[in-house]
Amino acid sequence: MKGMTIIVKKTTQLISGMVFLYGIYVIIHGHLTPGGGFAGGVIVAGSLILVTLAYGGDFLKLVKEESGTTIVESLATIMVILIATAGLLFGTHIFFNNFLPKGIVGHLVSAGVLPLYNIFVGTEVASSIFIIFLSLIIFKEESPQ
């Protein structure tokens, strides 16, 4: 897959790091400001797609990236369900319980187990959207035309 012209490549070099950082900010502050796992995950996926579109890549590199990202996505989903079940097996025996200590309202490290949920859900959404994009490009690349 061909990349784009040099102007696009230079602009992407400057901007994509800030978009990634903004996505991580929205994910981590999910219990204080609007946003959370879903919206932040989509922003992080946006920055990854920007880099892939601007620089291109040949076929084998894209296939290797897709298999690696699938493993990351599956691991993140298993971690979400494990945190939900950890309340069921140890401790208070209730599914989906909030069992870590809740701190002071308004601080970054507070609200028990919610920031962990936000981080894992954000990782999973970002890798899912990146896999959808990569699969469609790989399908177009492997056709004989």
Binding site: G36, F38, A39, V125, I132, S135, L136, F139, K140, S143
Partner: peptide, 24 residues
Amino acid sequence: VLTAIVIGLATTAMLMAVIIRLYR
């Protein structure tokens, strides 16, 4: 609405994949 938007995204992505294969 937040949950339903993500479900709509998954439905649209599935539809697009089938459309590309139909065109082929």
